[in-house]
Design a protein around this nucleic acid. Structure first.
Length: 106
DNA sequence: CCTATGACGCCGG
DNA sequence: GCCGGCGCCATAG
């Protein structure tokens, strides 16, 4: 596996339970130049390490755009709700209050 | 080598 | 705010 891919997974593993972040924020933090790369890495994550909390990564508006890549179409939403997050129409409620950034790492 | 394809995002109208 | 267009870049074919 490539280095940048490992870096992405490392960041995703640091997202606090009950919080989420975006493809773009991870890409910016790692200076990848493309948020698509983060999306691609998430798509591969289950093969590399199924324990990666990929459900905590959403697009910049807080929409669950990756939901169809989980086992069932509702799996991603269920995982987030289990962490106390509310979703309405495939979109995280109070997204701006829940979103987290890698910059917050201490 | 070249084209198509995204779990993306910015910008302009 | 909603599109359409475009830049982005790893991968697949």
């Amino acid at each position: 596996m490539s280095a940048y891919q490992q870096d992405i997974y490392d960041i995703v593993r640091l997202i606090p339970k009950g919080r989420v972040t975006t493809y773009g924020r991870i890409a910016d933090y790692l200076a990848l130049g493309s948020a698509r790369m983060v999306g691609w890495a998430m798509n591969q994550s289950h093969k590399t390490d199924p324990s990666i909390p990929a459900h905590r990564v959403v697009n910049r508006k807080g929409e669950l755009t990756g939901r169809l890549h989980f086992g069932t179409p509702t799996r991603m939403q269920e995982l987030l709700e289990k962490e106390g997050i509310t979703i309405k129409n495939h979109c995280i409620v109070h997204f701006d209050q829940l979103v987290w950034s890698p910059i917050e790492i201490e």
